[in-house]
Design a protein around this nucleic acid. Structure first.
Lengths: 332, 332
DNA sequence: ACCCTATATGTAACCGTTTACATTCTTGGG
DNA sequence: CCCAAGAATGTAAACGGTTACATATAGGGT
């Protein structure tokens, strides 16, 4: 394989000149540049970026830790990450963690072995929790964040958004609201529950007015949680699912049981994934600016990488939007 | 940052011994190994994999070219790729191409600059078409493949699968079948149309018995194509969409127009994405072994990387499965 | 005691770049 | 015509590993 020395010989110049021709063309005379380019062309020379990056101690790669790529909300975020990274000359390394701490640690460690310059994490856990503040690699945590931020975070106002959903259901006249929440230990779950409680309280209702069933953000868990809610003595008339996929599962189950949405039960989701505007019925939900999450994460991460001292361990909140569609209606 | 020389000094051994301790521990005595490990621990040493890979002229990374990560079918394939790659010690680089040839070329070139050892491509175009056979980098093309394979391909029997759908509709009694196809230049579209024609012919029907509308695999395009089909003088009683997302769009539109599925129109899809078993109605479709596609692609690619001479430019066909669900029924 | 072999370790070159520093070439002002 | 300054180019030392080859050591057989 042609290397920089091959080309330098072929062009009759030094390796330094060849290097400059490619990295800082302006520092080389018109004439030599052409000579070198011709020689490179002839030799089929492509600079070895592994060597270059090795020398520069930079991989120009970003590790993206995601619990599950198949989740449509995550894949939209990744789209945003990818496009911003690409335009900044970074490539993205994908790490599907399935929520396993071990996998997460393995992937996060790639930043220690110089295979990535930084990490974007889409779930709430800190792979570098054992490292002192000064030694922490560049990491940005988005969407689902742990409590005490040692790294920048970009989140939604989950509490506010959940409250907006509850408010919407209350306004429609619902008084018994069921909730299908996410994993109990997730900050997402906690924040959204908090928002629900606040919204209920404002209307003079206690949180206990809400029946809460356990889900895990999978469609199937939404499907199954419906049985729990409908077996209650005081059945809810509306169900707020903590993501759209569970909502879709819930709607499926409600129909299977012979009821209609929103006729017998209103259902609301969270995320506004693509399918939610086409499903039957279309889904009332919270729109999250997924691509923006991704792009912004890359911006902040690049800043951390390039100028770590300028980064405050900031907490950023992106706006949500309540989208009311066909799956919610006044109780019958 | 601690390097191998720091550790060698600390442990009082040569760099070679340190290197061996990490890459071939068996070739080092128990005693030295412990010494070195202690020293490494103390120095906080992590081997620089960029340096190692550079030396080995291998990046242990696989470039995955995908038209659109947000497509749930693709993201399932990527899950499969990721898990197989991870277990083989490869990391995966994600390249979202949006079908743009330029982006695709940029990403594919990363294999020339030693940033990736090979490419898995999920769409039908050959980024290395200008290279002679011996010079072609390791590339595996899956799901959607061009015609004359210069690289191994893993596909579905698209024609057979499409025929299976048509057969199913015919069996139900449908005689006027509408089709919402994919991009005209896609081999996928061509193969599936071929299968449709064959199936129709076998029942003594001409392809012209099928009304064909143009789609582009997006949900919206399915939504819009319905208008074309329903404005025909001889309306179809069943619609076969070339992917599930278009089917979901189509169902939405059909309902918006005041009709029901499958009461007024049967609808079938292709891919069996996750939501299809929960949608309303549940979707009759072709199940593709998405994760297997991904895993198998990695297997073949690794073989190409490790032992290029053993790889025949093979054409592999993975099995499909017709899944009949609620969206198809006899015509009324 | 000697030799042979196997095992463990060390030495130093090498991978393909970049870049600090040295050198040479140009050019314009005095 | 000379010199200083600036521009262009060259030289060689890194970067952090791996590994071919050389060397040292230990143990066993005769």
């Amino acid at each position: 394989m042609a290397n920089i020395r091959t080309v330098s010989k072929l062009a009759g110049v030094s390796v330094a000149t060849v290097s400059r021709t490619f990295s800082t063309p302006d520092s080389v005379s018109e004439n030599t540049r052409k000579k070198v380019e011709k020689a490179a062309e002839k030799a089929g020379y492509r600079p070895n970026l592994m060597a270059r990056n090795f020398r520069a101690k930079r991989s120009f790669a970003i590790m993206v830790l995601v619990p599950n790529i198949a989740n449509p909300f995550f894949s939209r975020i990744i789209s945003g990450i990818e496009s911003e990274a690409q335009s900044r000359g970074y490539s993205i390394l994908l790490g599907n963690t399935n929520g396993q701490a071990e996998r997460e640690a393995d992937y996060a460690n790639m930043v220690h072995t110089f295979q990535a310059d930084g990490v974007i994490q889409l779930s709430a856990s800190d792979p570098f929790s054992d490292l002192p503040l000064g030694k922490r690699p560049a990491l940005v945590n988005i969407c689902e964040c742990y409590d005490n931020p040692l790294s920048p975070q970009i989140q939604l106002d989950n509490s506010g958004a959940a409250a907006a959903i509850i408010d919407h259901l209350l306004e429609l006249g619902h008084r018994r609201i069921g909730i299908i929440k996410g994993p109990a230990d997730s900050p997402l779950t906690r924040d959204r529950l908090e928002g629900c409680a606040a919204a209920l309280k404002q209307t003079g209702l206690e949180m206990s007015a809400a029946a809460i069933a356990q889900g895990d953000f999978s469609t199937r868990s939404g499907f199954e949680a419906v049985d729990t809610l409908l077996s209650l003595r005081k059945r809810p008339t509306a169900i707020f699912c903590f993501n759209d996929e569970m909502a879709i599962g819930a709607i499926r189950r409600i129909r299977d049981l012979g009821y209609s949405v929103p006729g017998d039960f209103s259902v609301a989701g969270f995320d506004d994934i693509a399918v939610s505007s086409f499903s039957v019925p279309t889904l009332t939900t919270i729109h999250q600016p997924a691509a923006t999450f991704g792009r912004r994460a890359v911006e902040v991460l690049c800043q951390m990488i390039d100028a770590p001292e300028t980064v405050t361990h900031s907490q950023e909140i992106l706006p949500y939007k309540l989208i009311t569609r066909g799956s919610t209606a006044p109780p019958s």
